[in-house]
Amino acid sequence: MKLDRHDLRILDELQKNARITNQDLADKIGLSPSPCLRRVKALEESGIIIDQVSRLNPSALGLKLCAFVHISLDRHTPERFESFERQVLNYPEVMECHLIAGQSADYMLKVIVPDMEHYHEFLITKITPLEGVTGAHSSFVLRNPVNRTALPLPIQ
């Protein structure tokens, strides 16, 4: 899908506030409501807009520990990667899973749990027993001064 300046402005506004009404969105970007809604639907159908969610404050929910876990696997085969990804997908503690390069690890997981005790339990009962896992190295977040969800867009 070729994006024009209206599409980019729609995406920018929706990243700021996904709850904005179609009328308010149309007003902000200089379109009438019907074409604005058609554009939003087209952006959804094309897969550019993948979902709209509410961001929650993990600390307010008692989830005070965020860890990045570098995972090493014994084999670099499509089957091993698929198996690992399929299993970690089932763990609600795993917020993100990235197959990475440039490190000694194969994967980097972002994990959020209540505390170190829960993290230890997660690591020894869910991660290290997975077939093919040969190592797990953890880093813990002390502070999170930047936490964005909005992608940088080339607004025209």
Results as ranks from 00 to 15, higher is better:
3 L>H: 06
4 D>F: 04
9 R>C: 02
11 L>H: 03
16 K>V: 00
17 N>I: 00
24 D>C: 02
26 A>P: 03
26 A>T: 05
30 G>P: 14
33 P>K: 15
37 L>K: 07
43 L>P: 03
44 E>N: 04
44 E>A: 03
45 E>C: 04
46 S>Q: 13
48 I>G: 04
50 I>Y: 07
51 D>G: 13
53 V>S: 14
54 S>F: 15
56 L>T: 10
58 P>M: 11
58 P>L: 14
58 P>Y: 13
61 L>W: 10
62 G>R: 08
62 G>K: 09
63 L>N: 10
63 L>S: 07
69 V>C: 11
69 V>H: 06
75 R>H: 11
76 H>M: 11
78 P>F: 07
78 P>K: 09
80 R>K: 09
81 F>T: 03
81 F>H: 09
91 Y>G: 04
92 P>N: 09
93 E>I: 02
93 E>F: 02
96 E>F: 05
97 C>Q: 03
97 C>P: 01
100 I>F: 05
100 I>D: 05
101 A>L: 13
103 Q>K: 10
105 A>D: 07
105 A>W: 01
109 L>V: 02
110 K>A: 12
112 I>V: 15
114 P>E: 13
116 M>W: 11
117 E>A: 13
120 H>R: 14
121 E>G: 00
122 F>R: 08
123 L>A: 08
126 K>R: 15
127 I>A: 11
128 T>G: 00
133 V>M: 01
138 S>G: 02
139 S>T: 06
140 F>I: 12
143 R>V: 00
143 R>C: 00
144 N>H: 06
145 P>C: 01
146 V>F: 02
147 N>K: 05
147 N>P: 01
149 T>K: 00
151 L>H: 09
151 L>W: 06
155 I>P: 04
